[in-house]
């Protein structure tokens, strides 16, 4: 028997498997960069290359996670964590990026604060926002956490020029405005997956940073 039609494959399945493929290539690139780094210790271009590769890798991980969420192949792994441990983890992950720039990262958080969340996803959400903040800030970023109305919040404040007005007034993620799109969308999805009783997590953006720039908050119930 001859089949004339191609069996249906969903676009997201194709996307999912392509991301894996690209990620594998990126893995090889990252390893080659490691090799270059050893012979060229003073070369800032290589550090930049390393940072860009890691950024691409993070983007792909976010895409893969979103794909798994859509394919319902995904459950948050919620447990109780120390918020300061989360922030330390984020700081450590960001260390090479901040070494590269002249921006200082300051952390404000009480040692005792605890939070129910998926550790990995919360860290990569904050990382993703921090990555963006770093691009637009001049000298300093404050990463803080606290409690408010039954939520734990993570806040990133920078000293840049702030979000464009169109963005803060609609509050919607607009993919067309450039590279903040996927990251913000990812974080809002992850925030939303965190729920407790009738509350769900959310994000908020404003230009009320104590440093005069943009302020981003992730609220988890």
């Amino acid at each position: 028997m001859i089949h004339s039609s191609v069996p249906p494959v969903s676009f997201s399945a194709i996307l999912g498997s392509s991301i894996h493929d690209v990620k594998n290539s990126l893995g090889v690139i990252s390893e080659l960069i490691q090799q270059l780094k050893q012979t060229n210790t003073e070369n800032r271009h290589i550090l930049q290359l390393e940072f860009e590769a890691s950024r691409m890798n993070n983007n792909l991980i976010q895409l893969l996670t979103l794909y798994k969420i859509e394919a319902k192949n995904f459950t948050l792994d919620i447990d109780e964590y120390s918020v300061s441990e989360i922030l330390n983890d984020v700081k450590a992950q960001q260390s090479s990026l901040f070494d590269l720039s002249d921006v200082a990262l300051e952390i404000e958080c009480s040692e005792d604060l605890l939070c129910y969340c998926d550790f990995n996803l919360t860290c990569s959400s904050i990382n993703s926002i921090l990555n963006n903040a770093q691009r637009y800030s001049h000298k300093k970023i404050i990463l803080s956490a606290g409690q408010q109305d039954g939520y734990v919040y993570f806040r990133i404040e920078d000293d840049g020029d702030g979000f464009p007005e169109s963005f803060t007034s609609t509050g919607k993620v607009d993919f067309k405005t450039g590279n903040t799109g996927l990251g913000l969308y990812f974080v809002s999805i992850i925030a939303n997956l965190h729920s407790n009783d009738n509350k769900s997590g959310y994000i908020s953006t404003a230009n009320d940073s104590r440093l005069g720039g943009a302020s981003f908050s992730l609220f988890l119930p």
Binding site: G27, S30, Q34, S54, E85, N88, A92, Q93, S95, S96
Partner: peptide, 18 residues
């Protein structure tokens, strides 16, 4: 612990400390 490649030396240290 799980550590995702690529990771920074500080992240490795932080995870070991934890």
């Amino acid at each position: 612990e799980y550590l995702t490649k690529p990771f920074t030396v500080q992240l490795l240290l932080t995870r070991l400390e934890r």
